[in-house]
């Protein structure tokens, strides 16, 4: 495979500022004998939005889910290379998954609120490790909902079951839920694939608002979405990182033939 130079001028600046960031060094991921991600070397710039694109089955979700070790549940998984978060090897023997996931939030393809009240959904993560008083907890819930742009819509019915919300609202609830535990990184696994266009636009706006506050890594099969919301784009094909660079350049002057083919819809 060809090594792709990482052109990322802003990286040094943020890393120097002490922000934890995610990077992969020749990282590979296997399901049993199946190699899903092959030797990916990639640095996700802090406080920016990075999109991972590629045809379905290219390993982009696997790569994303490797970052917070969501793939631990799968039997027979195996990794080589390094995936580093905040200077620590995510797959190192001393790493604590529970602590890792607290710092790396995740939003899933399908909105998956707990069958609890809206309030309890947001408070869920915080209650795990903090015994806050009711008032403090209310403040956390309000801030998180406001950041997710949902506060105005639900402030009068915080005790309603979260399942009574619409699909788009549920997804923003899930984002608010992730924000409530003060993560540093936010992983989004095709967050709008189950939503209608209006709800999608709302979530995309939200991503733009969250930019600069969190390191966001978003997997999407929708190239327009990648172009709209991301600062950087990584193109994955059959588990290999084909090309990585600033989104504006990737979409206008792709360096690799395969990137161009994919973006112009010749396969995928």
């Amino acid at each position: 495979m060809t090594q792709i130079p990482i052109a990322n001028p802003s990286l040094e600046a943020t890393a120097a500022a002490g922000a934890a960031h995610v990077n992969c060094q020749e990282f590979s991921f296997y399901y049993g004998d199946n190699q899903a991600v092959t030797d990916v070397t990639l640095d996700f710039p802090s406080f920016q939005v990075t999109a991972i694109i590629g045809p379905s089955g290219c390993g982009k979700s696997t790569l994303l889910r490797s970052i917070n070790r969501m793939n631990d549940l799968i039997p027979g998984r195996r990794t080589t290379g390094r995936l580093v978060f905040d200077g620590q090897d995510v797959y190192g023997p001393r790493l604590d998954v529970v602590a890792l996931r607290r710092r790396i939030g995740m939003v899933f393809q399908k909105p998956n609120p707990f069958p609890k009240s809206i309030f309890n959904n947001i408070a869920y993560g915080r209650r795990l490790y903090d015994s806050l008083e009711r008032r403090e907890l209310q403040a956390v819930v309000e801030t998180s909902l406001q950041r997710a742009g949902l506060w105005e819509e639900v402030k009068d019915r915080l005790d309603d079951n979260a399942l009574s919300l619409s699909g788009g609202q549920q997804q923003r609830l899930c984002i608010a839920r992730a924000l409530a535990v003060d993560p540093e990184v936010l992983l989004m696994d095709e967050p709008t694939s189950a939503l209608d266009p209006r709800a999608t636009a709302r979530v995309e706006d939200l991503i733009a608002e969250l930019r600069g506050r969190y390191t966001i890594i978003i997997v999407t099969h929708n190239m327009q979405q990648a172009a709209r919301v991301s600062d950087h784009t990584a193109f994955l094909y059959e588990g290999n990182l084909v090309e990585y660079g600033p989104t504006a350049r990737m979409f206008t002057q792709p360096r690799e033939k395969r990137t161009e083919d994919y973006m112009t819809g010749r396969f995928g």
């Binding site: 604590d96 529970v98 602590a99 795990l128 490790y129 015994s131």
Partner: peptide
């Protein structure tokens, strides 16, 4: 609750 108790 601290992490150690949770893990326990």
């Amino acid at each position: 609750m601290d992490l150690r108790t949770r893990k326990l």
